[in-house]
């Protein structure tokens, strides 16, 4: 089978051979083609779930489970299945019902408050740590840094049981492997503290790592200048080093914010039931549309879209900041 095509191409200089020839002479063409192929792949895999959510959200509840989302189209006598799912009916009211059935805005507020608090704590502490690791030389620096990074290698689930015990505040904390009591912690379940504390600890190492890299690159002269001009070391950090590391700070902030905003595992355990008053986050809210007997997929989809909007806005805003920070390249001293 290969022989006839080969001879055919050789004799007539077939299209494949011509294309190969031009690709060899002009490799940019291949790179561009590969770029578009990869681009389309990533766009489809990231955007299709959103499209699917929208389709689900606007489909009236009664139509969800009957029939197919892939409509049959009849074009000029040729009938076939349309390859893209389309909504079965149009019910934008789902986006309102979402707030009527469950106080979803309160869940969003919970997630938002937890994310902002955690981000502020992480940025502050990680800035101090980043300053120390990035700008000071002391024995054991590498080892300490490695230790901090090692925390992030642990699966978070490993911390859940001891943390739950501690935050429950029922029994005193004991020295490991003994029964000698140290102190009885306050009860923190169902409060933001029981979530912000573990989140801060878990997301800190990544931020420390990012900020260490950025703070380490700020020239010493600028810090010296700030200190001579009248700041303390801490003042120089927050007035000069941090603003000049804006891209790094923004990256650390966005990553922390999104991670906490989307977090469910810890908060579903630290909030003993998925109620807004118990600081249950967005995912807890979305899951409340599922009851023992019904699952309102359209509302869950609508709530997911609403819940994702703040993050989308944040990323768009922060991305501009990151890009502007990277392109200005003002760090020549």
């Amino acid at each position: 089978m290969a022989t006839p095509t080969d001879t055919q191409e050789q004799s007539s200089d077939g299209p494949l051979q011509r294309w190969t020839q031009s690709a060899i002479q002009n490799p940019d063409k291949v790179y561009r083609a590969l770029f578009y192929a990869a681009m389309v792949f990533f766009l489809v895999t990231t955007l299709f779930p959103f499209y699917w959510l929208i389709v689900l959200a606007v489909t009236p509840e009664g139509n969800l489970l009957s029939g197919s989302f892939l409509p049959t189209v009849n074009l000029f006598g040729v009938s076939g299945t349309f390859p893209l799912p389309v909504p079965k009916g149009f019910n934008p009211g789902a986006f309102v019902t979402v707030f009527e059935q469950v106080p979803f805005h309160l869940y969003m507020l919970n997630s938002f408050a937890l994310a902002v608090t955690t981000t502020v704590i992480v940025l502050f502490v990680a800035s101090l740590a980043g300053y120390v690791f990035g700008r000071l030389r002391f024995p054991g620096r590498a080892l300490l840094m490695l230790g901090i990074l090692a925390i992030s290698y642990f699966p978070p689930a490993a911390f859940v049981i001891p943390l739950f015990q501690a935050f429950a505040g029922n029994a005193p904390i004991t020295i490991p492997f003994t029964s000698i009591p140290l102190f009885t912690p306050p009860r923190m379940l169902n409060t933001p503290g029981s979530m912000v504390l573990p989140f801060s600890a878990l997301f800190m190492p990544l931020s420390i790592f990012i900020l260490t890299t950025f703070y380490g690159q700020i020239p010493d002269g600028l810090e010296d200048a700030a200190r001579v001009e009248g700041t303390t070391r801490l003042g120089a950090l927050f007035r000069v080093i941090m603003p000049l590391s804006a891209p790094g700070v923004a990256t650390a902030a966005v990553l922390t914010f999104i991670a906490v905003y989307n977090e469910y595992f810890f908060s579903s355990i630290m909030a003993t039931s998925p109620e807004a008053a118990k600081w249950s986050p967005i995912v807890g809210g979305i899951l409340s549309y599922q009851t023992q007997y019904t699952t309102q997929f359209n509302l869950m989809a609508a709530a997911s879209i609403v819940g994702v909007l703040p993050v989308v806005i944040l990323v768009i805003v922060a991305q501009e900041r990151i890009v502007s920070g990277l392109t200005s390249g003002a760090l020549k001293e």
């Binding site: 020239p219 002269g221 600028l222 009248g230 000069v240």
Partner: peptide, 27 residues
């Protein structure tokens, strides 16, 4: 350094790149 009543000019100039001239001078 801030309590010594000194001012310093650095070899690498060390102006704060994120501030304009007025903000640099008045820092």
């Amino acid at each position: 350094p801030k309590d010594r009543g000194i001012a310093m000019v650095f070899q690498n100039i060390a102006l704060f790149p994120h501030m304009d001239v007025y903000d640099n001078i008045s820092f």
